[in-house]
């Protein structure tokens, strides 16, 4: 299925990957694509590793992305990028948030947060590193970090023709459209690098 594109969003439960998946799939649908999406619920949340998979094209069959198949991997947390890297195509792009959330074994001192992750990823594949938390903080709402990353994703996938700002305004909580659009624009800009 060469005409099907694969976007893999990964992070930690509670980081807002599901909202980004929703915005993304709604926009793609409005642009006339067949879209399928897969997400995890239940036990897999509660601070665990989460993924949100979006596939689009003329006709999509499988709702899940295979290892080595993602055109872009957007990781909301640094270490998660490494965990899911095998799903990224060797020809794909990685968008990595420079933002650490230590997992339970790290918090209890059983493991250390791995160093040099960004260097490893950069040595393997085209990589954009985003300091989304900082950008969101500067905009004035740390909770828009996920939308900053979404902006970088749109830039990375060259999906800029879709009217994303309208889609965002239709989905985010009432009263937060403006700041989320600002976050989206900042993410687009950061994704250019």
């Amino acid at each position: 299925m060469p005409d099907v594109k694969n976007i893999l969003l990964v992070g930690v439960g509670g980081q807002g990957t599901i909202l980004v998946g929703k915005i993304l799939s709604n926009g793609l649908m409005s642009a006339g694509f067949d879209v399928k999406m897969s997400e995890v619920h239940g036990m897999a949340q509660r601070g665990g590793s989460v993924s949100n998979q979006v596939r689009y094209g003329k006709k999509v069959f499988s709702p899940i992305i295979d290892k080595g198949q993602a055109d872009i991997l957007v990781s909301f947390e640094t270490m998660e990028a490494l965990r899911w890297l095998e799903y990224l195509s060797p020809k794909g792009k990685a968008v990595v948030n420079d933002y650490r959330i230590p997992s339970a074994p790290i918090l209890t001192g059983k493991s250390d947060y791995p160093e040099g992750i960004l260097a490893v990823i950069k040595s393997k594949v085209a990589t954009t590193v985003i300091k989304a938390a900082e950008i969101a903080q500067n905009i004035g709402n740390p909770r828009t970090m996920n939308i900053v990353l979404f902006g970088a994703l749109v830039r990375g996938m060259e999906l800029t023709d879709i009217e994303w700002e309208k889609v965002i305004a239709g989905i985010v909580k009432a009263g937060t459209a403006e700041i989320n659009i600002e976050a989206f624009r900042a993410g687009m800009k950061a994704g250019e690098i």
Partner: peptide, 12 residues
């Protein structure tokens, strides 16, 4: 790449 060195992220 080396996957063995990535600490787990179990739900808590």
């Amino acid at each position: 790449y080396d996957q063995a060195s990535i600490p787990n992220r179990p739900p808590t």
